[in-house]
Simulated assay, not measured.
Amino acid sequence: MNRLTTHPPGRAQGWLAAGPRRRVTPAVRLICLPYAGGGSSAYHGWQELLGDDVEVCPVELPGRQSRWREPAYTGVRQLVEALAPALAPELGVPYALFGHSMGALVSFELARELRRRAVPPPRVLFAAGGLAPTLRRTSPNIHDQPDAVVVERLRELGGLDEEILTEPELLDLLLPAIRADFAVCETYEYRPEPPLSCPIVAFAGDRDREVPPDRVAPWREQTSAGSTLHVLPGGHFFPMTARDALLGTVRATLAAGS
């Protein structure tokens, strides 16, 4: 896949959504990875709810929003190998990783890639609605299926408004990145490595048919520093519908580690 040699405006060579840089160093920098097909806007409003001690830094993946002209990555390894060196200069302060669904997988592999590059570990890894890395997916692959199949899958998951799913021009813009993101998840192969040295805080939705709590619980195997599982009300997009409860746990966890 050919990649652009220039970088869009923004922090970390465009990987962090553009925004004003803080004049005061934050107590902790929270790097946030989106779900499949999502962009940095998935974390809109988090900064106000988490307070001044936490700097929320949503990652903008290629192929969407401010980077929609760039080809999206179709494999997690290539993605984190590009993301890790761009983020490294931002990680000289205490930081944490948060990922929802596909973002949980990317956050996990990003933490392992940063470890290979001798970057200090995150204070904590938050994995929300993400299939534990050692488990196999049970749903059929759709990244290479006809548009109608992909759209129906998106409708089942509930991640896009119905008005977008029925608008051909919008779908034409969104589907390449969505297919690429599904490929990231569907082609992933877990490779054993030592457990992470940071705690893992996992979240699951009590009505999530895609990744139910028992498919989230094995995240505990990926850390030597302890893990917790919080089951919140909602389906696969419980980070949106149960946002206050989720962010309350995030805020308390980060404050306890300061």
Rank of each mutant, 00 (worst) to 15 (best):
A27K: 14
G63C: 08
E55Y: 15
A177H: 06
E109W: 01
L173I: 14
V59D: 02
R155M: 07
L110S: 03
G19N: 06
G103Q: 08
A204R: 10
T241N: 08
A177T: 14
E156Y: 07
R23M: 03
R191G: 09
Q65I: 02
A256E: 11
A180L: 05
A202C: 08
V80G: 04
D172Q: 12
P140S: 13
N141P: 10
N141V: 09
P122Q: 02
F108E: 06
R155K: 12
L91K: 09
L30E: 11
P62Q: 02
G130K: 00
P195S: 04
G38W: 13
D161V: 01
L196D: 04
V149C: 04
L171N: 10
L4I: 10
A17I: 06
E162H: 15
R67H: 07
L83S: 08
C57S: 14
V250Q: 00
V151F: 06
A86C: 08
T6H: 14
Q145D: 05
R116P: 00
L110M: 09
D147S: 12
A255I: 03
H143I: 01
A204E: 02
L30Q: 13
R64E: 01
V93S: 10
A225N: 04
L175K: 08
C32Q: 14
V56G: 05
A217E: 15
C198F: 01
P168K: 08
A42C: 14
D206A: 08
P94S: 04
Q65Y: 00
E163F: 10
Y188E: 03
L131D: 06
L173H: 13
G234Y: 00
D147L: 11
T134K: 13
D181P: 15
G75N: 11
R112Y: 08
V56A: 06
T134G: 15
D206S: 05
A180V: 12
T138I: 05
R11V: 13
G257F: 01
E81D: 12
G159P: 12
M102C: 07
Q13M: 07
I164F: 04
Y73G: 00
P89S: 02
T253P: 00
L87I: 07
A17T: 15
V216Q: 01
L97Q: 07
D244A: 14
E113F: 03
G51N: 06
